[in-house]
């Protein structure tokens, strides 16, 4: 893979940056049918912050998140998680990076059906053969309000409870960064609000780092910062957003 972006090397990234994309492009297919899902993206995500990635459907949000999380490879540019350049890692090293340093929440189907809620929460640590920090896990579960549900299997939990388990799993191993792809997309607004509130508290009170993909302005307003994507490019950015300011920006982009 060639790096078209200026070489950053493996020098420690600026303090406080949990993950960064440097000149990242992602092209699907080739020739006439090529789709530029990401086009020369430069973005960094600060530790201890809650960042939302917004944009219309097909703008490249999920693709960006997948690349940042080591689930997908980039066509050009490089991705840094902490000071690790993902392009230098093997498939196995990427897997271990996801397991040990990253947390995930997907839109749906977040849990292994044969494992209990607690087993799902500690799954990445169990896979690593690490003993979970029980005090921390308890605090997460407590905060998310799952205490009496930990021995249930996913099919015995409601959609909202399942998402709470997923968020707990993402936080339980105290990863450097948590990626969430439309985590409230399948939930009703009340349940969704609870999850978002919890994510915000995890950042504020527990000093976690979360990057969330969403197309819902209301959801994005829980974040500290919103990055706007359109046609694979970063087109705008906003701090301390409210639903209204986000909606305005979205409308402006639509024109």
């Amino acid at each position: 893979m060639t790096l078209l972006a200026p070489p950053i090397g493996t020098a420690p990234a600026a303090a406080g940056i949990a993950a960064a994309a440097v000149g990242v492009s992602k092209i699907y297919g080739h020739g006439d049918t090529a789709v530029h899902a990401l086009d020369e993206i430069d973005a960094s995500f600060q530790s201890g912050r809650f960042t939302a990635i917004m944009g219309p459907s097909g703008s490249g949000k999920s693709t960006l998140m997948h690349c940042l999380a080591g689930l997908d490879t980039v066509s050009h540019g490089s991705i840094l998680v902490g000071d690790t350049d993902l392009s230098t890692l093997s498939e196995r090293e990427l897997t271990l990076l996801r397991r040990d340093r990253i947390g995930f929440v997907f839109q749906s189907f977040n849990l292994v059906p044969t494992l209990t809620a607690m087993e799902n929460i500690t799954l990445p640590m169990d896979l690593a053969g690490r003993t979970p920090d029980q005090a921390w896990v308890d605090e997460v579960i407590n905060t998310v309000g799952l205490d009496d549900r930990t021995s249930h299997r996913p099919n015995e939990l409601s959609g909202g409870q399942q998402q709470r388990v997923a968020v707990s799993r993402a936080l339980a191993s105290q990863p450097e960064i948590v990626f969430a792809d439309e985590p409230t997309g399948n939930l009703d607004s009340t349940t969704g609000a609870e999850i978002l509130e919890f994510m915000r508290r995890a950042v504020r009170e527990m000093d976690q780092t979360i990057v969330m993909v969403t197309h819902d302005p209301n959801a994005a307003s829980y974040a500290d910062r919103v990055v706007f994507l359109n046609d694979g490019k970063i087109v705008d950015e906003m701090f301390e957003p409210t639903p209204d300011t986000i909606l305005d920006t979205m409308k402006a982009l639509g024109n």
Binding site: R92, D100, F109, L111
Partner: peptide
Amino acid sequence: TREIGLIRAVGMTRWQ
């Protein structure tokens, strides 16, 4: 398939 995708995403190695 989806379960396998999930479990690989959260860090299960191929060998596991």
